[in-house]
Design a protein around this nucleic acid. Structure first.
Lengths: 190, 190
DNA sequence: GACTCTCTATCTAGTGATAGGTAGGCTACC
DNA sequence: GGTAGCCTACCTATCACTAGATAGAGAGTC
């Protein structure tokens, strides 16, 4: 019907395939069959597969930024915010054993456009900036305690969660991520 | 099967391509051109691509197990062993921005054989077993200190290193892994 | 109301390139 | 003379992508 509906359906389906299979492991035909159109029609909305990739990562970034702002607005102290942050990763993994889109693209980064890689790094930077802010906040208020710099601790948290997702997915066991997340949080609240 | 020179050359080249591009992002033709033979000849040594994948992961597992045994034999206390363990990951990343083979396959696991997935999980189990042993050892001797169970701490360490590799690779910056590794170690020696 | 023109969103049909894999032949060594 | 190792030549399937046609909606003109 409307351009927006189909475009959104393509992106939603592509995002699911990206998160479950990887960007190089689904074709425009896979996508088209699921959406219920022909593969040629996808090219009308996204001229090349890289255009689709750019759109996916841009939308994902925006959603993450929005989610983090919501956490800032609705949650209380730093530990509460971090707990909700963990929740994002957990619910991703629990929804069809999906990997974080950024993490998946990171593993395929050598096969992607430079423009996509830049956007991908900025996606990780979004997480890093927010975590750094929360860690500073928590240290100042005395709710969190850690030895490294907030920026380095932020990177460590993100690395751990991405790695835990990657491995938990291999075992199809979301509890692995859950336990890793809770341990991570416990170490910050000693 | 004999380990002829060609077979080894195929595996070495395939391993490099697996670690840099991913298993689904290189073809038998890519492989053949680099080795200096025709793609049909690769099928003589490895009938299918999955056979090649199985051989790669089996060899990788053996090498990891051997490397860990060497560390056990040559290194002193638990912190020294963990430091050398980190060195394995760092040198992998510093050699052409390579990802750990297991980590790369993990991201592609949904496109792999069940047999390969099983071997992949066992590969992670190898790390987990060794780390668990070292952590128990270090706790007993007082060289290491941590709150979680040795097994859970082992999983956390492996997750962090895999995730840090994944992200460091995206930035082409091995120092990110180095810093993550050193922070991880520092937290165990408080 | 009927006409034309344009735009959107899709289709059919096909491109050249490349994927993994196969059949059968050549050559050198035991 | 059998076999190991590699070759040429080819297969079928699929890839991202394109050209050109078509149906429908909307706007403006008469």
């Amino acid at each position: 019907m409307e351009m927006t509906d189909t475009r959104t359906a393509i992106m939603d389906t592509a995002e699911e395939l990206l998160q479950t299979r990887g960007f190089n492991a689904f074709s425009f035909r896979d996508l088209a069959e699921r959406v219920g159109i022909k593969s040629a029609s996808i090219h009308y909305h996204f001229p090349t597969k890289m255009d689709l990739c750019r759109a996916l990562i841009a939308r994902h970034r925006q959603r993450v930024v929005d989610a983090l702002e919501t956490i800032d607005r609705e949650s209380g102290d730093a530990p509460a915010k971090l707990l909700r942050y963990l929740g994002i990763f957990q619910s991703t993994l629990e929804t069809g054993n999906r990997m974080c889109p950024s993490g998946m693209l990171a593993s395929e980064s050598s096969t992607l456009d430079e423009a996509v890689c830049t956007e991908l790094r900025e996606s990780f930077d979004d997480h890093e900036r927010w975590l750094t802010k929360i860690l500073k906040e928590g240290k100042k208020s005395g709710d969190l305690s850690f030895d490294g710099s907030p920026r380095q601790e932020a990177r460590l948290i993100l690395s751990t969660l991405e790695g835990a997702m990657l491995i938990a997915r291999t075992y199809s066991d979301p509890r692995r991520l859950n336990i890793a997340g809770r341990m991570l949080l416990a170490k910050l609240m000693v």
